[in-house]
Simulated scan of single mutants.
Amino acid sequence: MSHASILHLTDDTTPGGVMRVIDNILNSKYLAKTAKHRMAVVKKNQLILPTAGVDVIVSHLALNWRNFAARARLRAMHPNIPMIHVEHSYTQGFVAQKVLNKTRFFAMLRSAFCLFDRVIAVSNAQKDWLIRRDLIDEDRLSVIRSSVELSGFEALPKPRTQARVFGLVGRLHEQKGFDIAIRAFRECSGPDLRLKVFGDGPLRDELEQLAYCDPRITFHGHCDDPLEPMRSIDALLMPSRWEAYGLVAREAQSAGRKVIVSSIDGLQDHISDGAIDVHDHSISAWSRAITQAADAVDKNRRTKKAKPRSGATRFEAEWEKCLESV
């Protein structure tokens, strides 16, 4: 699809993983060789396509019953334009934790996915769940794991051989399970251990109150520079209750940091790349994982050196292949 016009749609420009992934696509010099990628923000389900024309629409939009009519209208208005949807949100863990009427929810997803020529899962675990639940035909489903430019993370100095500073990075929200990590860290002995919390969100006051009695735990707010948290930690904790992929885990691994994840949803994809998995969300399990990481001496942990890339990254190659398929 040479020099095609690709329009990426989003309805949420909040700083975070989705916007960083879209920015990575828009700024890719490799993808720009064969297509022009643009972004449009959909507000109140209203969208008018650019007059210059669009060859492919890529949806990064939320799917639910409230906006289903608007998504169907978009499809009806542009029946001849191939449409791709990237499912950044829904997972098995989300459904288990947050969905009461699962039959109705699955009906919505099946109906919404039918509006698109292709759907992209952002992790292998999410793909397996979508197929297992018969939410989409496998031949219309691709997997492209979320990614950003990683050379800055690869170039960071090597961390300590023994983890002393642990980090939580992300939105302070129920999903991320930061309350679990804070309670577990408080159970760990070691006056030289530290837990740094990077991010903001609706649970900040509650989490600060939870950590109030432990001066080893500090809050640093949202960082515009994603490299900043990685510079100051030796290990990343991700006790998420649900997670489609977990981009920050990939960044931490690129920076040579230890990564400890709950074995849920897309976080399972990082285990094969070296992340340490915790099989449940109990305080005792996470306390043990933190203690073991702090006690372990890892002389071989390395930071990858950034190298100039002459060709496409895996992320770019997979996007190119997906766009060619429609």
Rank of each mutant, 00 (worst) to 15 (best):
G152A: 12
A40V: 10
Q92E: 12
I260L: 07
L210Y: 03
K258V: 05
I144G: 00
I131N: 01
K36M: 08
H173T: 06
S282P: 05
A244K: 02
F94H: 13
L100D: 14
E316C: 02
P157E: 14
A312E: 10
L267M: 10
I180P: 00
Q126N: 09
E138Y: 00
K29L: 15
K196W: 10
R309A: 15
R104C: 06
S272E: 14
D234A: 04
K305H: 14
V95L: 08
V41D: 09
Q92H: 10
S254G: 07
M108P: 03
F185W: 06
L74M: 12
D179C: 04
R75E: 03
D192Y: 02
Y245L: 14
L109A: 08
V99R: 10
H3T: 09
L203D: 13
K43G: 02
D128G: 00
F116S: 03
A96V: 01
I6D: 00
L168M: 11
M19N: 12
I48V: 10
P15Q: 05
R301M: 13
P82W: 02
E243G: 06
P202G: 06
S282V: 09
A107V: 05
R183V: 08
M108C: 14
D205H: 11
F185R: 02
L227Y: 08
A163M: 07
L150Y: 11
W242M: 05
G274A: 08
D134H: 11
W129E: 01
T161N: 12
A52N: 13
S142L: 08
H270M: 08
P229F: 02
S151G: 13
A296L: 09
E87G: 06
H37C: 10
G311H: 11
S262D: 01
S146A: 12
Q268E: 13
P15N: 09
K44D: 15
W129H: 02
A35E: 00
S142D: 15
A112K: 01
W286A: 02
H270G: 02
D205A: 15
N45E: 11
D12Y: 03
A112Y: 03
A69R: 12
N27Y: 06
R66S: 12
F198V: 04
V169M: 07
H37I: 07
V54S: 05
A293Q: 04
A62Y: 13
K43L: 11
A32P: 04
D137W: 00
R309K: 15
R250L: 12
D214G: 10
S282C: 09
F219M: 08
S262I: 03
F94T: 01
M230V: 04
Y30T: 10
P191G: 08
I182Y: 06
D200P: 02
